[in-house]
Amino acid sequence: MRVIDLKKIFTLLMALTFLLLTGCGGNSAQEKKSSELHISAAASLTDAMKEISTAYEKENPNVKIIFNFGSSGALQQAIENGGETDLFFSAAQKQMDSLEKSANLVEGTRKNFLENEIVLIVPADSDKKISAFEDLTRADVQHVALGEPKGVPVGQYSEEILTALNILDAVKAKAVYGSDVRQVLAWVESSEADCGIVYATDAAVSDKVKVVAVAAQNTHKPVIYPAAIVKGTKNLDDAKKFLNFVGTDAAKNIFEKYGFKCID
């Protein structure tokens, strides 16, 4: 019988911790540039923001941008509970309103910078000839992928659109609800669903789906992305500078590449 010695496990664990702690402490200290800008942003902005930060760092080599991508709601909760960050880019007004109410924003820095559209998508090789939201009621459309209306913002917008078009009840009978917008996209990509309703930006990143209709502006609340500087920032100047950079043509081109509409 082999005997496992607890003391050995013990020593091994301690040695590992020590190694990792000392080994990694050194790395992060070396990489520090003169100024760090911490940005918390909605997950749907991930690829666009990364590209914009690369462009910004090229122009401002002394600044290093550190991202924290997550769901807008979770980020808002964390910021309200003391999470330190310089800038916050939200995917909806609700979270920004909450931060403004709890006095967590630097006054006068909040601005709306992006708009997203809601689109109807079908698999790229679809032969069902779906071309408008009204087609969802057709008998040969069997599964419609939607975001869960209670928890997923795009699901709420979808219900608004379907209500405005007076086809909500007919579509509900064939709806499959995804727990986030990427899941809706995945169902349509794999043709599990005949069509789905997502943001224009989600449709833009996938070559396995095509957009067949864009929801009219008057059928749903506008999808606006607000940004603001968070109170307690240790880097107000750089935060302001970055916020201005987001409004420049260089940044706008990047956002548009990923399917966003920029707001002046």
Binding site: I66, F67, N68, A74, L75, Q77, A78
Partner: peptide
């Protein structure tokens, strides 16, 4: 982790 520590490259 996502909720409490965030998703900061190199840190969390």
């Amino acid at each position: 982790t996502m909720m409490f520590a965030g998703n900061i490259p190199g840190v969390t």
